[in-house]
Simulated scan of single mutants.
Amino acid sequence: MFSIIGLILSLGLIMLLAYKGYSTIITAPIVALLTLIVTTGFDSHLMANYTEVYMSGFANFVKSYFPLFMTGALFAILMEKANYAKSISHFITEKLGKNKAILSIVLSGALLTYGGVSLFVVAFITYPIARTLFKEADIPKRLIPGCIALGSFTFTMTAAPGSPEIQNVIPMKYFGTDAFAAPLIGIIASLLMLGLGMFYLTNQAKKAKLNGEGYGNHTEKESNEISIEKLPNIFISVLPILIIFASNLFFSKIYYALVDGTYLENFNTTLSNVSGTWSVIISIVIADLFLVITNYKKIKNLK
């Protein structure tokens, strides 16, 4: 029990330091060392626990998920540089209109994160659009973070079947599943998160309107937004997302189901432990290659 409390406190401290702007790469090992001192004391094999337990776990995490982080980061950058992400966001908001400003931002973030774009990139892409929509609809600006979070940080990150986000990928290794595991539960959980989140946000907007609270007076720096006319076609913009979904489904459910994975015994693992992660990595790489091939002239500073 004491070790669990120490773990919770250490995670809280890491989050606090990250919020204050300190690098997690530096703070995480320091907090881990402090946690070991508090929970085990100086005479309980401190350095052995630090180097052989903590650092071994850290190294295994990097080994398993660095390719996913790297390919996913490339995908997010390429989607941004090709203006595909902006095209998707503008299309959704244009079709739904300012009267559905909250739903527009939520769905924009959801589609982008479900397609594999990093949720942090999505936040920066959707914010300028949300700012304009909320100002036109006279909805309090303070609700923008909640809309972005609901669309990007909730159901598409953790529950929606087939999501390539890292939070959905990590459990695969331990449960021997793929990204599409438990689809019915995932869909129900996603609908609950979306429904309850939308109920809360729309209710807050209605309360603000009744209290006479509008967008507010804010000094805002104008961003260099690309004109809507120059944005790529929406069908081309969603192709990389469809490529990831279709490829992931193919490799997860068809290709690796037919592969003989007995050779993996030589690597001390099984096909069920790695096929889910491999499927996501391969799918994102295919989408990355598609983006590079179709946009190599547009992306001037590719390296």
Rank of each mutant, 00 (worst) to 15 (best):
residue 74 L to C: 07
residue 88 I to K: 11
residue 99 N to P: 02
residue 247 S to G: 14
residue 216 G to P: 10
residue 14 I to Y: 03
residue 295 N to D: 10
residue 266 N to E: 14
residue 77 I to G: 08
residue 184 L to Q: 05
residue 88 I to L: 09
residue 262 T to E: 00
residue 181 A to Q: 06
residue 298 K to G: 10
residue 221 K to S: 06
residue 145 P to W: 08
residue 141 K to M: 08
residue 77 I to A: 03
residue 102 I to N: 00
residue 153 F to P: 04
residue 277 T to R: 11
residue 174 Y to D: 15
residue 192 L to A: 13
residue 115 G to N: 06
residue 48 A to R: 15
residue 204 Q to L: 04
residue 106 V to K: 00
residue 265 E to Y: 11
residue 125 I to Y: 12
residue 11 L to E: 05
residue 44 S to Y: 05
residue 177 T to C: 12
residue 153 F to Y: 12
residue 145 P to N: 06
residue 50 Y to D: 02
residue 96 L to V: 06
residue 99 N to T: 04
residue 173 K to W: 08
residue 217 N to V: 01
residue 189 A to F: 08
residue 177 T to R: 05
residue 265 E to N: 13
residue 2 F to L: 03
residue 188 I to S: 12
residue 133 L to G: 04
residue 168 N to F: 03
residue 21 G to D: 00
residue 286 I to P: 09
residue 83 N to R: 10
residue 225 E to W: 00
residue 133 L to K: 13
residue 16 L to V: 04
residue 283 S to E: 15
residue 91 F to P: 02
residue 206 K to F: 00
residue 189 A to L: 06
residue 201 L to K: 08
residue 231 L to D: 06
residue 261 G to Q: 11
residue 37 I to L: 07
residue 289 L to D: 06
residue 65 Y to G: 05
residue 282 I to W: 06
residue 210 L to G: 04
residue 294 T to N: 15
residue 115 G to Q: 06
residue 90 H to I: 11
residue 247 S to I: 11
residue 32 A to E: 12
residue 39 T to P: 08
residue 186 G to P: 14
residue 145 P to H: 03
residue 101 A to V: 07
residue 98 K to Y: 07
residue 49 N to I: 09
residue 34 L to E: 01
residue 103 L to I: 10
residue 229 E to S: 15
residue 55 M to Y: 02
residue 101 A to D: 08
residue 158 T to A: 15
residue 81 K to Y: 01
residue 203 N to S: 12
residue 236 I to E: 14
residue 33 L to W: 08
residue 86 K to N: 10
residue 14 I to Q: 07
residue 262 T to N: 02
residue 14 I to P: 03
residue 60 N to E: 15
residue 188 I to A: 11
residue 173 K to M: 15
residue 194 L to A: 06
residue 183 P to E: 12
residue 231 L to M: 14
residue 112 L to H: 01
residue 280 V to P: 11
residue 9 L to I: 10
residue 124 F to K: 13
residue 100 K to H: 09
residue 231 L to K: 09
residue 295 N to K: 03
residue 159 A to C: 15
residue 33 L to V: 07
residue 239 L to Y: 09
residue 10 S to H: 13
residue 199 F to D: 04
residue 152 S to M: 01
